[in-house]
Every structure is written in structure tokens, then in C-alpha cells.
Simulated scan of single mutants.
Amino acid sequence: MTALQQPNANQNWSRQGFANQSVRQVIRLSSGGSEARIRISNQYGVQPLELTGATIAKAARGSAVVPGSAQPVRFGGAESVSVPAGGQVTGDAVTLSGLTSGTQLAITLYFAHATGPATFHEFGATGASYRAAGDQRAATSGTAYRETSGSWYFLAGVDVTPADVGSVVAFGDSITNGFTAAPGSRYPDLLAARLAASGRAMPILNAGLGGNRLLTDSACYGEDGLTRFHRDVLDQPGTRTVLVLIGINDLGYPELPPTSCTTPNPAITAAQLIAGYRTLIRDAHARGVRVVGVTITPFRGASVYTVHSAQLRRAVNAWIATSGEFDAVADFASALADPADPTRLAPKYDSGDHLHPNEAGYRVMADAIDLTTL
């Protein structure tokens, strides 16, 4: 799945959308199966989205696909589909052989007519998107795809079947989304690999959204977590457990001068953030979904660090760890902390910005989760 957000003015294709263009998007599966269905979203569209056609193929290098693997995607048997503003459609099942956890697929969407602004995911950490003029759905090589974006567009998810084991959703911000991580190295990817190696393979869906906050919307970083929790977690097929790692931006942004991306930028209290977590727990339990609380990771030395934000993190983490209100707890804060100064990321786990872990850090996070809690 992909956590989606409204178009913004950053360096991406969301504001302009597409017209007589093909968009090829490379994604990575977290579980295997024999059939795949794509989901196309027009969640933030201002007009119906006219998708002329789509293909799904096994990805090769860059924007190329494995020869002979591309298959057309139908929608109720039709080649094209109209997605209403605010709506979503699911393609018919496509049979593909050899789908395993880690398989990379290329989803190609062709828009003959102007789409208007695009519902999208800004930081696609597991692959890239490529744009070409005209209808390039059948192109095997990547020659026609001369433009590249780090974002995904209109693609809400790829569902692989059979998937009767249920799924885990990792819900959070850029740390969950895997900022700085190589493809396959985000903590949810590594957790999926751990489960598969243990003989308990199950899909791990990534609902991370860079810059996202639990309590406050952003023009650049998506709707607040309280709002998107139902769509991105509870409404996902087969959700059984959610890992909640969000709040660091709620604590940190008020310590920075406000920008167009962080406005509104209200100061918050530990009690307000805890009340937000309680809302997530209540809504999840009402749907029979388990909730694993994850402690907020160290960030001393990052731009959002102050004495005040550190105090808030300490109070919130104490509640996560000791309140007993979550079904289980994963202590990422302790796993990543510098033994000489627990308010900092250990140097061996620091990507360099003192906020986001590196690949070794993401691996430690995945290893810190008790698999029996999932």
C-alpha cells in the first residue's frame, strides 16, 4: 500500500498532473502470491480521473521491464476506467508467476487526457517513477522514459493474493517511510523478511508519510494521522495489527520557524499527544485490530531538538512504555540510543542528520519487535 497525500508545490509532478503521458512506477512487494490487483486513487482529485489503460510487469533495471512479463490490467473487464473525485477503483486480478516478498513490479498508467492535480505519495522510498510522452504501456526498454520522479502517483496499493494470513500496518512518518533507506531496507521491509525467515510470512504494509504529524495537517506532509488512520490502516484489506510510530514532528516542528509546509504549527503538550494515541487505540480496538505502541526515537542534534521537545519526548515515551494501554510495546528509543547519551542516536545508527536512522538503524528497529506481538 501507499499512504497518499494532496498535491503540493514541491519538486514533483503532482500539481501539473499528466496529459497524453505514461507513468511507470516501480514498487516492491512485501509478500508473495499468484495474483496481483492494483488500486488507483483519486482521493484528492478535483475532477474525475480518466485512466486510459494500465499494465503490470516484473521490473528490470531502471524503467525497463522483464521482456514478456507485461500484462494489461482490466477494470471490470474494461481497458479504461473513470475514477470519481475522492474515489478509488481496484483492477481485476492479474496472474503473475514467481511473486515473492521483495519482488519488484512496474505499474504503468497511461493518461490520454489531462488528469488535473495528482493524488500522490511524495517520497517513494522503495522505487522510482518514470514519465514518457504518449502511450508507452507496452515499452519493454526504458528508452522512452526520459523523466524521473521520487514520488508515486495515483497508485494506492498492490494487493497480492492469496493473502489469508492477515497483515501488519506500519503507521508513521518519514522514519517509517524509510527516509535515507535503500530499496528493501526500511524497517517494515526488514520486519517482513524476519517474519518470512521465521516461517510466519505475512504482509507488512507501509503507511509512513514523510513529515506527517499525528495532530496537525500540513499542505506538504499530508492530512494529520488521526484523520488518515482509518483510510491508511483500518480500511486496508486484512489488517490485524498496527505499529504506531508517530509524534516526533508534532514535538519538533513548533521548535522551528513556521514555513508554508508546517503552518499551522501549534505548540502541543504531552497530554495532547497521548490523547491522540488513545484515539488510535480506541478506533483500532473497535475494529478488532491490535495496536503496538512504538517509543519515539532519539533526536538530539537534529534541527527539531530543544530542551522542551526533549522533555515532551521523555514524558510521551514513559506513557507508551508503562501505561499498558497499547496491546504491546516496541522500544525503538532504547534500541537506537547512544549508550553514552540516550537522547542521541548511536553514531553507528545515525544517517547523519541525527534524526533518521541509517540502514543499520532500521535493521535494529526491525529486530526490536517481538514477532509474537504481531
Rank of each mutant, 00 (worst) to 15 (best):
Leu371Ile: 14
Leu243Ser: 11
Ala36Ile: 13
Asp173Gly: 02
Gln136Val: 00
Leu226Asp: 08
Ile296Val: 13
Arg228Gln: 09
Arg344Gln: 07
Pro342Phe: 00
Pro357Asn: 07
Arg228Val: 04
Pro339Asn: 06
Leu105Ser: 10
Leu245Tyr: 01
Pro117Gly: 11
Thr90Glu: 15
Ser218Trp: 01
Leu371Lys: 00
Ser30Gly: 14
Thr343Ala: 13
Arg186His: 04
Ala19Arg: 14
Asp217Cys: 03
Gly68Cys: 10
Arg314Ile: 00
Asp370Pro: 12
Leu374Thr: 14
Gly293Ile: 07
Gly86Tyr: 13
Thr161Gln: 15
Pro48Asp: 14
Thr322Ser: 14
Pro117Val: 05
Ala192Ile: 11
Ala340Arg: 13
Ile268Pro: 05
Gln16His: 01
Ser167Gly: 15
Gln47Ile: 02
Pro7His: 08
Ser22Ile: 05
Asp232Arg: 08
Pro117Arg: 09
Ala275Met: 03
Ser80Leu: 03
Val89Glu: 09
Ala112Asp: 15
Asn8Lys: 01
Leu109Lys: 04
Gln311Phe: 02
Phe179Ile: 01
Asp338Arg: 01
Ala112Val: 02
Val81Ser: 05
Ala315Ser: 12
Glu122His: 11
Ala57Cys: 09
Asn12Gly: 03
Ser149Asp: 14
Asp331Ala: 11
Gly199Leu: 09
Asp350Met: 00
Gly222Trp: 02
Ala335Ile: 07
Val364Gln: 15
Arg314Thr: 14
Leu99His: 12
Arg231Pro: 07
Gly208Trp: 05
Val233His: 08
Asp189Ile: 04
Thr108Cys: 13
Val169Leu: 10
Asn249Glu: 05
Gly127Phe: 03
Leu312Gly: 10
Asp159Asn: 09
His113Cys: 00
Pro266Glu: 11
Gly17Glu: 06
Val158Pro: 12
Tyr44Val: 07
Leu243Lys: 01
Ser34Gly: 15
Ala328Cys: 11
Tyr221Cys: 14
Thr108Arg: 12
Ala271Arg: 14
Ala271Gly: 14
Thr2Trp: 12
Asn212Glu: 05
Gly225Asp: 08
Ala330Tyr: 07
His121Val: 00
Pro347Phe: 00
Val292Trp: 09
Ala335Asp: 07
Gly102Lys: 12
Gly172Trp: 03
Ser323Asp: 09
Arg131Pro: 00
Arg300Glu: 14
Gly32His: 06
Ser309Trp: 03
Ala271Tyr: 05
Pro258Cys: 00
Gly210Tyr: 01
Thr90Leu: 13
Leu209Tyr: 03
Leu355Ser: 02
Phe229Val: 06
Thr140Phe: 01
Ala315Met: 06
Ala59Leu: 06
Val168Ile: 15
Asp250Arg: 01
Arg15Pro: 01
Ala340Phe: 00
Ala267Asp: 13
Arg213Gln: 05
Gly77Met: 04
Ala366Lys: 09
Val89Phe: 13
Val26His: 02
Ile27Met: 09
Pro257Met: 05
Ala133Gly: 04
Gly127Asp: 06
Tyr153Val: 12
Gly45Asp: 13
Val292Lys: 06
Val168Ala: 13
Ile38Trp: 02
Thr239Cys: 14
Pro67Asn: 12
Pro67Asp: 12
Val89Lys: 12
Leu234Glu: 11
Val160Ala: 11
Ser22Leu: 01
Ser149Trp: 10
Gly222Tyr: 06
Gly17Cys: 02
Ser129His: 03
Gly157Ser: 10
Gly211Lys: 03
Thr262Pro: 11
Glu359Ala: 15
Ser198Ala: 15
Thr279Lys: 14
Ala93His: 11
Ser303Ala: 15
Glu223Leu: 13
Phe18Pro: 00
Val65His: 08
Asp92Val: 05
Gln88Ala: 13
Thr52Glu: 07
